[in-house]
Simulated scan of single mutants.
Amino acid sequence: MQTSEIVIAGDTPGIEWRLPVIRFKGSDAKAPSVYIQAALHANELPGTALLHFLCARLRKADEEGAILGDITIVPQANPIGAAQSHFGEMQGRFDLASRTNFNREFPLVALDDRESLLEGREALTAVNRLKRELLHMAVGADLMLDLHCDDQSLQYAYIDDAFWPEASDLAAALKMEAVFLSDGESTAFEEAVGYAWKHEGKAAKKTRLPGRLAVTVELRGRCDVYPEMAKADADGLWNFLAGRGVVRDDAFVATPYEGPAFALDNIEIIRAPQAGMVLFHRDIGDTVKEGDLLATIVTRPGMAEGDIEIRAPQEGLVATRSSARFARRRDDLMKIACAEPSKAKRKAGTLED
């Protein structure tokens, strides 16, 4: 195991950020290489917990010569966001300086132009230098896992159509309860990695990428940071690495993924029509039918005539739910994964900012 730090100069004198990187050298040049990061949204820590326990297992495997492919791990990918606090609460999703989501606006470059990511860094802001360092490491691997979490949610993942159904082994290993098949049309980290691979060489854009994987894994909710849960997730990720030949494990047995996969166009995002207190009637993991009562918005406490009922637009699986119990107008309350497309129009790319 090798450890190092990438130093990122701050945008004001006397400030710098340090990005720890952990590397395990593989013994087989033909084995896939892997890049895994967590906490790009700095306040999403289930992935950091997973990697803490996975690294312990990888250190043991390293001593036993069981690591076949090169593995690069960045357990806390956003030291800038981790230092942002407003009235005692970490603000890890958006850069306070630019108001930009830390998981947006990654450069879209072809794999052949990978080294251009590190050119002229001194003229960029600290956040953009961080993004380029992360992307440079990731596109050089064969497999990339970006570990996130939702607010309150099932275990699921965003997977580009170009990697499906080959990526069902990851869904099975992590016991995912759903897969969202994305269209690869945004500047999020996962899709910037996929873009680089799709545009490798001078041939036409690739639509299938066998042997590669770029995925955003949503490890349940932000508060789901527990040792036993993280250990189980680390074991699942180990099994994925074993199945792909990155580590050697003679006891590994592959299992099929039997859960559902939904196109992003089939995700109903339930929003609050007005501001008010939220009373949820359904929880994550529930299957609802069209017309079922999902939540009540209490707009005028003490006056029942101000209550607004929100009902399911179609049958589906409640995949996520907000932890907030007061909503502003148009706040997201739930995501429901459905068999049929939503009637709401959706632009290509990510579901939310």
Rank of each mutant, 00 (worst) to 15 (best):
M144V: 13
S186A: 12
L170V: 08
D150C: 00
G194L: 07
R132M: 14
A188S: 10
W197G: 05
D150K: 00
E200S: 14
L174W: 03
A173W: 12
L170Q: 08
F180V: 15
L154I: 14
C149D: 03
E185I: 00
A162T: 14
A167V: 10
A192S: 15
M137R: 15
D169T: 11
L130K: 05
L181M: 05
A126W: 06
V139D: 10
D183E: 12
M176L: 15
E133K: 07
K205L: 10
E166P: 06
G194H: 12
E190Y: 05
A171I: 11
T187H: 10
E190G: 12
S186I: 08
D161T: 08
V179H: 01
E190R: 14
D142E: 11
Y195A: 10
V127D: 01
Q152L: 08
T187D: 15
L147P: 00
G194R: 09
M176A: 01
K202M: 04
F189W: 15
A173Y: 13
Y195N: 07
V127L: 03
S186L: 07
F163P: 01
W197C: 01
A203P: 01
I159K: 00
L154W: 06
P165K: 14
T125R: 14
K205C: 14
A173I: 14
L135C: 07
N128F: 13
E166Y: 06
R129F: 05
H148E: 05
A192F: 12
Y158M: 00
M144Q: 14
V139L: 09
Y156M: 13
L147R: 00
A171Q: 14
E166R: 12
L174N: 01
H199E: 10
D161W: 06
A138G: 11
I159T: 03
R129T: 05
A203I: 08
D169A: 11
A167Y: 09
N128Q: 15
D160M: 06
A173E: 13
D183G: 09
L170A: 11
N128D: 15
H136G: 01
T125Q: 12
A172C: 08
G194P: 06
M137A: 05
A196H: 11
Y195E: 12
Y156G: 07
V193F: 13
V193D: 04
Q152N: 08
